[in-house]
Amino acid sequence: MLQAHQIVRKYGTLPVLKGIDLEITQGELVTIVGASGAGKSTLLHILGTLDNPDSGKVIIKGTDVFGLKEKDLAAFRNEEIGFVFQFHHLLPEFTALENVCMPGFIGGKGAAITKRAQELLEMLGLKERLSHLPSQLSGGEQQRVAVARALINNPAIVFADEPSGNLDSRNAEDLHQLFFKLRNELGQTFVIVTHNEHLANLADRKLEMVDGGLKV
């Protein structure tokens, strides 16, 4: 599903990633842990094509993503990669349903995307919240809308950066169980950066970053 080969990233003269090699298989739920400043988010952003490495390759579904032209990379990212962040980043003037549909609309998809968005929101327990604005939803509900949005284009892989970091313990646990449900029922692949030890230990694999490298 995903291979990373010798990923190097520096900020100025400061090395942040020091030759990362990584492989993720279809349907895996992988967590990445480590101290602040270890390079977790930088690695996640490069794997998700939100940032470029100074050197190295990332291959997703057989595509060398950084070998693509910028326009083609943007289209690939929209179709094959989903993102969930600590803060949901929902558009405040749009309903839950409209927020979920947005990546599909950007990809030029028609009415079928609305039906899929409805199905995803119902699957995530938000059947009665389709027409609600983000301000009318709880924090946990907003994050579930963000998860549905990440899934709308049936991506190859979903990257999540501290997805439960802004939630209370109950909503955090609900979100974690949701990830496993999606992995089990849809075969969805997840790579999750987290400080939550419980989630990290439940994963198929837990990777620890130390000083810009993966601990063996």
Rank of each mutant, 00 (worst) to 15 (best):
K181E: 12
V145G: 05
M209D: 03
I20N: 01
A146K: 00
P103W: 05
K40A: 00
A112R: 11
P53D: 01
V84I: 06
V210Q: 10
M102Q: 10
H45C: 13
F179G: 11
K181S: 15
A150V: 01
H132T: 04
G27T: 10
G165A: 07
L186Q: 07
L17H: 10
G140C: 00
L50G: 11
I81H: 01
D204E: 12
T49C: 15
Q3H: 09
I46M: 05
L97F: 05
R149G: 05
F87H: 07
F76K: 07
N171L: 13
F180Q: 03
L137A: 00
L186W: 11
T25P: 11
A172R: 01
N153P: 11
M123E: 03
D72E: 12
G27S: 10
T194C: 10
E197C: 06
G110S: 02
Q6W: 05
T49D: 08
T189M: 10
H89S: 02
T49P: 08
A111C: 01
G56E: 08
K115Y: 05
I59C: 13
E173L: 11
L44N: 12
E173I: 12
I106T: 15
S36G: 00
I24Y: 14
L133E: 04
K115R: 15
N196P: 12
G107E: 12
T95R: 01
P103S: 13
G165C: 06
D161V: 01
E185W: 04
I32T: 03
E80P: 10
A156V: 01
A38K: 06
F87I: 03
L214I: 14
L73S: 08
L29M: 04
G213K: 14
K18H: 06
G213A: 14
